[in-house]
Design a protein around this nucleic acid. Structure first.
Length: 474
RNA sequence: GCCCCCAUCGUCCAGCGGCCUAGGACGCCUCCCUUUCAAGGAGGUAACACGGGUUCAAAUCCCGUUGGGGGUACCA
């Protein structure tokens, strides 16, 4: 019988979750959930010089924010003894040897010999004894090939002679990731290794290590196509926005993020891209993953996010925006914020936002005494010949208004259109033109929420005040 | 340099020998709706890198070329 799949996501403690890593985590998670298997998070923190608990925690935290829950947690730093024992055994069995060459030595010899970079096997038979600056290297075969049947890439093979004798234990006694990786995959019974294509070339080394460990049943490997930027280069920390946490902070919803990431390299058989995670879990198959690199498209992600945002029940939408409008990061102080007023605008806001961080500027005119004024909007609308006539009429209309409702505002703008001569061929008011100066005067921009409803909420007095103030400057 | 991989619209995904005058999605353009902006509706734009095979038939299989990418650490 086939054992239940066990897959692992192996982040290095970098301090943030990378877009590419998140996609790897997602695909592992999808496979585990699809098959009823086990999703393991194994922190590969063998680099003691760089690893810090906070950095690891930041990565795990983002995984949690995304909703990628896991079943087991392991830290390689807890398992060093296991790796050291194995290294000792390799040494005893002649599968590994000590080496005291410095990196400079190796490099110098390669250059002198005009040979390719990489370790040249200098210490293979020198019987180097333990000491300062001494590492342990794994002896790779000189002949033959090492390969595997990749679910995504079919057969991949390397000639052993191209595999250098790589370091498995550093000179400070700390094991290297290849050793830890091989041992853990065997020890933890990992059945499927799903990871980025940038790791293919380490696979033969791990396979060799597994053989040395006595393992005769390697896992199924699935090397995912890379996620690249517009320039078709692997996403990098320097050039690109790769921090998933940043995206979440900008107001991309975790579910939209995951849905989008799922479309990078994978496609549902029916071609439907935008769909609930539950369906993706159900449909996900490793065999449906493509092999060519996929570009990260922010526009498409934004579209997905907008779809998810609009699909939310209004009160949940309000709940989700809370951090952007009701907290310390909002452009206004908490006492300036009126939750009920926002609630009335919410449906209109929801329809117009692609990311949650856009929300404040859609409603700032309501909560700020002097809302930001868009200079370009002002110049354009107030510079038109009819601007002052419209404003004069609007002020008069607002002052004379009875009950202050959206309909009342509409009526006043219609009248302003007539008064300013903004009428169509059939004598109908040109609302689009007439509302523009009023909008800029009161809401600060030529684009935004529907004017009539907005002014109803702004209130009669404040509306008049802003209209007057604007008029005096035209 | 060496090793490994990839190759369908600008981008993502479909196509796994005939159903392809290549389909869907994002973007972009046009129109409709409309108090702005969105949203929505209707259209449109745009691709099988090239060259050889194999086959009655190739986007689909094979080889080569070209192009692109990844790796080449006492990082993972």
């Amino acid at each position: 019988m086939v054992a239940s799949p066990r897959v692992r996501f192996s982040p290095a403690p970098t301090g943030y979750l990378h877009v590419g890593s998140a996609r790897s985590a997602l695909f592992n998670w999808l496979y585990a959930r699809h098959t009823g298997g086990t999703f393991i998070v194994r922190v590969e923190d063998t680099d003691t010089a760089r690893s810090q608990p906070e950095l690891t925690e930041a990565v795990l935290d983002t995984l949690r924010r995304l909703g990628l829950d896991w079943d087991e947690t392991h830290h390689q730093s807890d398992r060093f003894d296991l790796y050291r024992v194995a290294a000792e055994r390799f040494l005893d069995e002649g599968l590994a040897y000590r080496c005291d060459c410095s990196q400079d030595d190796v490099k110098a010899r390669n250059e002198a010999a005009g040979g390719p970079p990489g370790y040249d096997g200098h210490c293979r038979d020198r019987n180097v004894q333990p000491g300062d600056g001494v590492v342990v290297r794994f002896r790779t075969p000189d002949e033959g090939t090492t390969g595997w049947d990749d679910v995504i890439r079919d057969r991949v093979e390397f000639e052993n002679r191209h595999l250098e004798d790589f370091v498995i234990v550093r000179s400070n006694g700390v094991p290297m990731f290849l050793l830890a990786n091989a041992i853990d995959d065997v020890d933890m019974g990992i059945t499927h290794v799903i990871r980025g294509e940038d790791l293919v070339n380490t696979t033969p080394k791990v396979l060799l290590l597994r053989q040395a460990l006595g393992d005769d049943e390697p896992p199924v490997y699935a090397h995912l196509p890379l996620i690249v930027n517009e320039a078709r280069k692997k996403l990098s920390k320097r050039r690109d926005d790769v921090n998933i946490g940043d995206y979440l902070d900008r107001g991309f919803l975790p579910e939209a993020m995951l849905n989008y990431l799922a479309t990078l390299g994978w496609g549902a058989p029916d071609g439907v891209e935008l769909r609930p995670m539950a369906e993706i879990v159900q449909l996900f198959e490793l065999t449906d993953i493509g092999k060519s690199p996929a570009a990260f498209d922010l526009k498409k992600l934004s579209h997905f996010n907008g779809e998810y945002l609009r699909a939310l029940p209004v009160d949940e939408f309000v709940e989700r925006v809370e951090p952007w409008i009701g907290g310390p990061d909002a452009p206004w102080s908490p006492d300036q914020f009126d939750r009920d007023a926002f609630g009335r605008l919410a449906p209109l806001v929801q329809e117009r936002t692609k990311t949650l961080d856009e929300v404040p500027e859609l409603v700032d005119w309501l909560f700020l005494a002097d809302p930001p004024e868009d200079q370009a909007s002002w110049d354009k609308e107030m510079g038109k010949p009819h601007a002052s006539a419209v404003l004069d009429s609007a002020i008069a209309g607002a002052e004379a208004a009875g009950e202050w409702t959206a309909d009342a505002v509409r009526a006043l703008v219609e009248k302003a259109a007539h008064d300013a001569g903004l009428v169509g061929a059939e004598g109908n008011p040109q609302l689009a033109k007439a509302q523009a100066p009023v909008r800029v005067a009161t809401l600060g921009r030529s684009k935004g929420l529907p004017l009539f409803e907005s002014l109803e909420l702004l209130g009669h007095d404040e509306t008049v005040r802003r209209l007057r103030a604007a008029r005096s400057r035209v």
